[in-house]
Amino acid sequence: MISLSFAVTFVSSLAVAPLYLSIINKTKAFFAGRQGPPLLQPYIDIWKLLNKGAVYSKTTTSILFVSPVIGLGCLIIATAFLPVGRTPSIFAFDGDFIVLAYLFALMRFFFIIAALDTGSSFEGMGASREAYFATLTEVAFILGLAAMAKKTGTLCLSGMLTQISGEMWKQSGGILALTASSLFIVLLSECARIPIDDPNTHLELTMIHEVMVLDHSGPDFALIHYLSCLKFWIIGSVLVRMVLPATVHSAWLDQAMVFAAVAGIAVAVGLIESSMARLKLNTVPQLLVGASTLSALALLLGLR
C-alpha cells in the first residue's frame, strides 16, 4: 500500500512539474491583462525540443552532452526523498537532506563545467555568476534545513516535513516562519525567478542562469527546461509542507493538498514577478546573505 502510493506520487510529481511553470506564466499574464499561453505550453515546448536535432559546437566535448542527463538523474533521486502525504518516503534515510543539497550542487557543477566546456567567454561569465549566487543560496538552504532538523529532532527530510504540525507552529512559530521565509528566497534564487534572475530576459549582460545554457539545443535544452520545473516542484513542496501542516489522515488526500498548495506558491511567485523588477546585480548577494541570516537566526533560536 505504501509503495503503491509512493509510486503514484512519484510518477505524478514528475508528470505535473511543468504545469507549475504555466501557472506562474498564467498569473503573470492575468496581471498584465493578457490571456497568456495555454496551460500545457511547457509540455508542448518540451515535446517540440525533444523532436529536434541537437547542434554541438566543434570545440565541445562529451561534457556538454552528459550534463543535462546527470542533472536529470540528480533531480529524480531528489524527488524520491520527498514524503507522500504525511508518511515518509520509502527511500528516506538519516541525513538525506544533506544529500539533497549535494544533488543540487552536483547538477549545478555539471551545468557550470558544461558552460565552460563551450569555450565561450560569455558563458564563462554566466557560470561564474551562477556559482557565486549559488554559493550564497546554499548557505541559506542548508542552515534552514538544519534549523528544521533541530526543531523536529530528526535528520531525514521526510521525517522533518511530516513532523511539522499546527501544534509546532503554535509552540515555536517564530523559528518556522523564519525558516520558511528564508526557503522562499532560496526557491526564487534556485529557480532563477525575479528578483534574483529574470527568466524572460535576453538582455545579455543581465542574464545569470540563461547564459549558461545558451549552447544547449534540442533534447538537451528540453531536459534543462524540464529540470528547472522539477526543481521548482521539489523546493516548492518542501516549503508547502512547512507552512501548511494540515492533515486529513489520508495519504492520497494529503498528497492532493500538497499538489494544490504548490500551485498556490506558483501564484505567489507570479505575483512577485508581476509586481517587482529584478534586483541590481550587486544587491542580489545582499538579499541572499539576508536569507542566510534568517536561517541562521532560526537555527540559533532552535539551539537554545
Binding site: P285, Q286, V289, G290, T293, A296, L297, L300
Partner: peptide, 9 residues
C-alpha cells in the same frame, strides 16, 4: 553590509 550581517549573526 554582508560582513555587518555576519557580525550580527
Amino acid at each position: 553590509y554582508n560582513l555587518s550581517l555576519l557580525a550580527g549573526v
